[in-house]
Write a protein that binds this DNA or RNA. Sequence first.
DNA 1: GTACGCAGGC
Length: 614
Amino acid sequence: MASQNVFKTLKKVFPSNSTAVTDQEIADKIAKTLITAGLKPLQTTPSLLSNLNSRVTHLVLSNPHLPLHSCLFFFNFLCRNQSLAQIPDLQAHVTLFYRLYEARKFAQLKIVLNSMVNNIDLQCPVPKIVALIENGRKNPNFVEKLCDMLLRVYADNRVFDEALGVFDYMDQNGIQIEERSCFVLLLALKKYDRMDLFFGFFDRMVEKGVEVTVYSLTVVVDGLCKRREVDRAKKLVGELAGKGIKPNVYTFNTLMNAYITRNDFEGVDEILNLMDKDHVDYNVTTYSLLMDWYANSGKFDDAERLFKEMCNRGIEPDVHVYTSAICWTCKLGNVRRASELFDELIERGLVPNCHNYGALINGLCKVGQMEAAEILVNEMQSKGIDANQVVFNTLIDGYCRKRMIDDALSMQVLMEGKGFKSDVYTFNTIASGLCRLNRNEEAKWLLLAMAEKGVAPNLVSFTTLIDIYCKEGNFVEAKRIIQEMKTKGEKPNIVTYNALIDGYIKKGKMKEAHKLKYEMEENGMKPDLYTYTSLIHGECIAENVDEALRLFNEITWRGLTRNVVTFTAMILGLSKKGRTDEAFRLYDDMIKEGLTPDDRVYSSLVSSLHTAKS
DNA sequence: GTACGCAGGC
């Protein structure tokens, strides 16, 4: 066999007792053998290459008669045979880099750089690497290219200290630094949440005169926004605009998303005005963000209008847009229409992704259509899209809502079997499922024990726990949990306050409830429909129907929309007091607002009539 | 470079 011949030849090249040969002679012989062998496999024994040393390897690799593919072949051969005394050292790497650079094989060069960076035996700070370049080969272009690629490779491999070291080296040695490479490092720092280094590095880029473009600007703006420093982000945009770096649609989308997250109407408006002024057209993401924003604030008509406007402007909706549209259509309770949107997406030639399936599966789970949800899960899996953690959590929630806790728990087992650990969503979902079944003790235990399983409880977990204690009338324990959550850096939100308020109301402690409403407003939280409904309910029970009516009217001038639960509470309160006319008037209002009264409304109205007559 | 689906309250 051919490999056997090479084996024999190498045996001649490296006689075990050889002494009187120079490095150059050995290197020449190896080169010759390699040229003869071509790409055929090479075989050896540990003793065979005993004459090999760093100098010989370097001489072989830099031999101009040895074709590049043979160099690589030899290099890889040495790498693979870890048992050899001589694995390629840093010098061997640098020699090969030059060969690859000379041949313009940059992709291959990147691969070798990668393996060097990942080799724990090779310490490779830039100055050391550059020092190993032979004098004749130390041309500025090579050094620049090598540094540039090294910066990227270090960034890709999260070796951030070295990456920053390359930047400094380039700066100190007057080597041109490409923004595109810095950009790779910026992205990696952001992705791995090294924000300390991230902002400092951007400052250095600017300071050292790297030609910053809107690309880096946008990444930094996003970094700031993710740290909720939106104002600083906007200021930066202004500053750089003054230096001629104009924000584009990506920058504006990033800022707008930050304002949307903050629920800052004025901020969003401001961005839209700026886009208008700068003649920056909306792209599909701009529309997607705005549609989501409208839909989440209940303005479904506006969301729908934007969807049409986008299509009319010739902007093709993408999978993200469909995910949002499916999601809000489901929230409107129209799963059928959501399902049509899913079909429409496919008709447009788009390939549905896990998010698209997830949104529709969620819609089905929320209306209790678990069979249909399961069919979709199977369909997506048959298309090679694996159900991820979100889909599993969605299904668990679906079963919990149907009070099928055992199915939910089986789903959790299935999920964990697929390698997904139960996360904070899983625990919170199951806990609330248990609460629905009045299995409060188990829910409490789960929420208190999750930390031991390595999942830190979050605001939702604490709020659920507080809600349980409040429903039990155990305000001491509820307050203790609030203290505990504060020490863990979670601030009570509107839902937490509402749980407390409702708890006090259920125990007839109206004074405390109102005090909490006040405290909540002091802390910058506006009472919502849940707060008002609880208070109205409480005042009605306490027979303060006029106070309830006052609150009922306060809702509308707060800009909130009353729902079935609010109307029901108020109608019940009026009926109980025999204020039948007012109750009927509200009933009419309710119908006018497109709400569907439930049985409780009718029976209370009927009994009110009965009371009034008697 | 930006954006998408899962959990809590009346």
